[in-house]
């Protein structure tokens, strides 16, 4: 637990980058980790490139991931977000929509949550805790679709 784990979620404005990082950081916080999440709002919400850093461990200092330190890159729009591969740590993992069958998603808006599903295979947190936390961030009518999206990624 001493080592800080660095996760970057990247994509375009409107794809749910910020929502995914909010779900992830809240879950890690509730699991007892020190967590820091950094992002930039504003102009980025107009469909431009956007990324959010989530860092967790026993003690996190800077909220931003240093270059060459990304352990997990969730690249939601590879054409634009694969550029962050340059900053992967040795052995760093890239997660992208190619990791699951996007056509099985009820809505393309759930790509962010499906990517969290893929990420969940790498983190030692019970499946139920993921699903509980995801449910908290969506209104009733979207919960089932997002739970399914998460499981699609997790079982891919």
């Amino acid at each position: 637990m001493d080592k800080v784990t660095n996760i970057r979620i990247a994509g375009l404005g409107g794809m749910g980058v910020l929502k995914a990082s909010l779900i992830l950081s809240e879950l890690l916080f509730e699991e007892g980790y020190d967590v820091k999440k950094a992002e930039v709002h504003g102009m980025s919400q107009r469909g431009g490139s956007i990324s959010s850093d989530v860092r967790f461990g026993k003690k996190v200092v800077s909220p931003m991931i240093g270059s060459g330190k990304i352990d997990f890159l969730l690249s939601l729009e590879p054409e634009w977000s694969d550029v962050h591969k340059n900053s992967l740590a040795r052995g760093g993992v890239v997660i992208s929509p190619a990791d699951f069958d996007v056509s099985k998603l009820k809505s393309a808006k759930s790509i962010n949550v499906a990517a969290l599903g893929v990420l969940s295979r790498h983190l030692d947190i019970p499946e139920g805790r993921w699903l509980e936390t995801i449910a908290k961030f969506f209104p009733e009518k979207l919960r089932e679709a997002n739970a399914e999206a998460f499981m699609l990624g997790r079982n891919s």
Binding site: L12, S49, W80
Partner: peptide, 12 residues
């Protein structure tokens, strides 16, 4: 900083 290719924001 290394130049990062990024998509500029645009009107909806």
């Amino acid at each position: 900083e290394p130049a990062v290719k990024s998509k500029p924001p645009q009107l909806c």
